[in-house]
Design a protein around this nucleic acid. Structure first.
Lengths: 199, 199
DNA sequence: ACCTGAACACCGTTCAAGT
DNA sequence: ACCTGAACACCGTTCAAGT
């Protein structure tokens, strides 16, 4: 019962947001390949040229989608720390990292695809750095002697594991039954750092 | 001075090979985005429809390109073992793995991109498995108690590290100056496995 | 058996013109 | 200020027809 007309007409400032939302839907449904500017405009009920008032080109639109991906990603990894004893936080965050990738395969892929063009967009860069920061900090805590190396190794491990699982490269392990393996490997990775460099 | 006309005319059986070669060139020059069926046909000097006699569709062509990528990859990783004492082989192969990715960024990306469609093509699957097999075996040797876990962890680590470097995600580290870091991290990963589970 | 020409149904992007 | 209509230069793919 509000005064604003609902669905149609994006002549206010919502077209930009609506485009990103629709792009996220298209991504989830058909992968990055399926996200097209014309089809996007069609979905939102606008002319093919309209999106270009809000995004310079397709890459800019994709970057915006990736940025919201990193925000959600950040929340997921950060949230995994709540109520967890400090010495188990790294393992919990690593597990949450991989589980996010498994839960949002196409979005995760997009976040690390070449289409983003070296993360030139500052918003995207910020969102990505924030997401990584959480895990890097936890990893650095585990290995105070070589904080940089520990963070990179940990990040490489969870990212690589995520990708291999998404690609279906691990024989007998699919997205649906990966949880036990993910749990075991992330905990073991945490333990490994600690054992190598005990406090 | 041979009897066969050189450049033109692929009416024998070479069109298929010529297409894959040209696609590899286009990939190196402009990335996966730049590989198009029409442009490909143009380069090889053939009609736009001709490639479809040899590849069902674009995905099949891309899969063929990825397969030769995995073959070269396999050789590089396997070759890194030559003349290296057995207890240093894993580290050497891990380093070679990452260095291959850094030396052939677009090819490596393609090999792990979603365009390949779950590695349905048997040739591609074989080529990929052979490449992974080398490293997995070396990793399993390092940790005989949990060969599967060790192999997956090692592979995840090198793959993740490669991707992060290609994406330029590591602050201050670019493809050109990554060598020392790559060497340090791969050697440390090898050491970590050994220390955690000494023979 | 292998390739061409022409066509179909799309793209991303631009730009004058509308409101 | 924001959007439309129409156009430009492309795509991937198919299919009858040529040799």
């Amino acid at each position: 019962m509000s005064t604003s007309e609902p669905t149609d007409r994006y002549h206010h400032g919502d077209l930009k947001r609506a485009l990103v939302e629709a792009a996220l839907e298209m991504l989830v449904e058909g992968g990055a390949e399926a996200v097209g500017m014309r089809e996007l405009a069609r979905r939102v009920g606008v002319s093919a040229a309209a999106p270009y008032r809000h995004f310079r080109d397709k890459q800019a639109l994709i970057q915006a989608v990736a940025a919201v991906g990193f925000e959600r990603f950040h929340e997921a990894v950060e949230g995994a720390r709540d109520g967890v004893p400090e010495d188990e936080q790294f393992g919990a965050m690593a597990e949450a990292y991989v589980k996010f990738a498994l839960a949002h395969p196409r979005l995760y892929r997009l976040m690390f695809s070449a289409e983003l063009g070296q993360f030139g967009d500052p918003d995207l860069r910020r969102a990505a750095d924030a997401a990584y920061g959480s895990l890097a900090l936890a990893a650095a805590k585990e290995d105070p002697e070589r904080p940089g190396e520990a963070a990179i190794s940990a990040w490489a491990f969870v990212h690589g594991l995520s990708m291999l699982l998404l690609d279906g490269q691990l024989l007998g392990v699919s997205i649906d039954n990966a949880d036990p393996l993910v749990r075991a490997l992330t905990r073991r990775a945490a333990q490994r750092i600690r054992t190598t460099h005990p406090a």
